[in-house]
């Protein structure tokens, strides 16, 4: 089967004043093209470290990451990111439009192509007509939508999201989750997301990767066998949803043994 991202025996340690600290131990996993994968685990387990390795911002101390068959030593082409802290990843001195078209500078696109790409992306996230606003004039949820629009405007092959909805209120969070499902339906971008919210992980994903232990390893890859489309009311009331979230929860809390050797 073809894979988009292959994580092979990735290990990571940091040298600290208190000696060597092992964070990741032989993490291996392959992502199927077009899949949405959530990475969960207890807090401090190394989820974000793994994500940074996948973006190419950090080099692992052992093992390798291949994107479409090529080992990466920096951010791969076609990568887009959505981070938890939108106030820090958007530029307050640029309008929404300029924030979104900044990553398009490297692509050979005419001005009118760029303009229509920005408008399309804003329409996709439901923010038509906000081009000339500044990020700080928008609500938190809207700012995160801008960050998602910026990601979509680059037509990415790979979308990486680090706790993207952790800084917004619960209602906005549900809205953004449904926005992500719509983006998945419309674009089918291979997506990796770190989250500490297990319900969210199960609700959005094809597969949930559970990291566990110190140093962390892949405890189990849970396949979410719930069909699409999903909805906040029906999916979350599905008995299978309850089973899966309970299983993932037990794995994250270290209460259950994995179903099979992962």
């Amino acid at each position: 089967m073809s894979t988009d991202i292959t994580i092979s025996n990735v290990s990571m340690f940091f040298d600290t004043p208190n000696g060597r600290k092992d964070v990741l131990d032989n993490v291996s996993y392959s992502v199927t093209p077009g899949h949405f994968v959530a990475i969960v685990g207890p807090s401090g387990v190394g989820k974000t470290t793994l994500l940074r390795i996948l973006t190419g911002l950090t080099q692992p101390t052992g093992g390798s990451v291949e994107v479409r068959g090529k080992a990466i030593d920096g951010p791969p082409d076609g990568l887009a990111v959505v981070l938890q802290d939108y106030t820090r990843s958007l530029m307050p001195w640029l309008t929404v439009e300029k924030n979104i078209n900044l990553p398009l500078r490297n692509k050979k696109m005419t001005k009118s192509e760029v303009r229509s790409r920005v408008a399309e992306s804003l329409a996709e996230v439901g923010l038509e007509g906000t081009e000339k606003s500044y990020p700080w004039q928008l609500s938190g949820g809207m700012q995160q939508r801008v960050a998602i629009a910026r990601a979509l405007a680059t037509r990415p092959d790979l979308l990486i999201m680090d706790e993207p909805f952790a800084s917004v209120d619960a209602q906005t969070r549900f809205d953004l989750e449904d926005l992500v499902l719509k983006v998945r339906k419309d674009f089918g971008i291979t997506t990796l997301m770190v989250t500490h919210d297990i319900d969210e992980a199960v609700y959005l994903s094809d597969e949930v990767v559970v990291l566990y232990g110190k140093p962390a390893h892949v405890r189990e890859v849970v396949t979410v066998d719930i069909g699409f489309p999903r909805s906040q009311i029906e999916t979350r009331n599905d008995p299978r949803f309850a089973e899966l979230r309970t299983h993932v929860y037990s794995l994250v809390r270290g209460l259950a043994e994995p179903n099979e050797a992962a």
Binding site: T55, P75, L79, A80, V81, D85, R88, M91, L102, N106
Partner: peptide
């Protein structure tokens, strides 16, 4: 200049010059 912002720019393939012009100089303003 915010490290998160600079890393976001790197992920999007924006080079040193773009980082100076769009992140470091406005941060210094």
């Amino acid at each position: 200049a915010d490290a998160v912002l600079l890393e976001t720019m790197r992920c999007y393939g924006l080079g040193t010059w773009s980082q100076i012009r769009y992140a470091r100089l406005p941060s210094a303003a």
